[in-house]
Design a protein around this nucleic acid. Structure first.
Lengths: 129, 129
DNA sequence: ATGATATATGCGTCTATGCGCAACTACGCA
DNA sequence: TGCGTAGTTGCGCATAGACGCATATATCAT
């Protein structure tokens, strides 16, 4: 049973729910810095969340140069499929802002690829002195 | 968003998942003592869990004499409907034992009603001295 | 090689929550 | 009105997890 509670636990966090929803809506893989600018959450935070979600089997990642692209792990079982649909069914208004920010951020892509890091500097971890 | 994470959080526990699944499968309302004997979890524990699930909008309760019957709250939104279906999609083998215990326990009903309390005594809270 | 940049991670702290225990309320019956 | 029974709840402990900060790793450019 723990394998199922684990998935629920993983989604028991607003940021993670927003990440999954954003990826489901985007229909394409997104890199960490794009998620950071869209969600307006600190880089280290987003990184931790996507790592946890990948461990739980909800996301997959692909590394390309310095960037790591995340996308929903195509659900194999009925259980995960239905959970994905549930997240996709969260009403629009809860995700509107994130989507708008993502749209803006995606304009920085060139040739379909991310070529820059986090633009909203206040979301970066503190630089070592 | 917290209203959605709350539901996931509520289901992030094996006992709760088993309770919901048992109620979904049973197709009828069950009282606390029947859940206790089916799940083989302490009475105070089951009581706390169903209370939490009711607060989260997942269950509803009906009091009849000394007994309190719980059943799944018929989901109004698409989100909750899909979550219920996900829980119902957890493979059989994870719920087999609970269901067998429930079948046994339901034989104690008369006229469709529960007429006794917890039968597995080791699952009761300690009696005050 | 050196530095810059994208992402990940270890640590301490704070909060949330499940559990066991014990007491409590609510209801019914004699 | 007193007792037994079904269920709830408050308290304390222990654990788990999210966050902020700092730093580490990995890759690329010069």
């Amino acid at each position: 049973m723990e394998e199922y509670t684990q998935v629920f636990k993983t989604l028991s966090d607003p940021t993670r729910l927003r990440i999954l929803r954003l990826l489901l809506d985007a229909g394409k893989e997104l890199c960490v810095c794009e998620l950071v600018d869209s969600l307006e959450e600190p880089q280290y935070n987003v990184s931790k969340h996507v790592t946890a979600m990948r461990s739980a089997g909800l996301l997959k990642s692909r590394k390309e140069g310095r960037w790591v692209y995340y996308s929903p792990q195509s659900a194999d079982g009925e259980f995960l499929k239905l959970l994905s649909r549930a997240v996709a069914a969260i009403p629009e208004r809860h995700v509107k802002h994130d989507r708008a920010e993502l749209r803006k951020r995606l304009k920085l892509r060139e040739g379909g690829k991310c070529l820059t890091g986090v633009r909203k500097e206040h979301l970066l971890g503190k630089v070592s002195s």
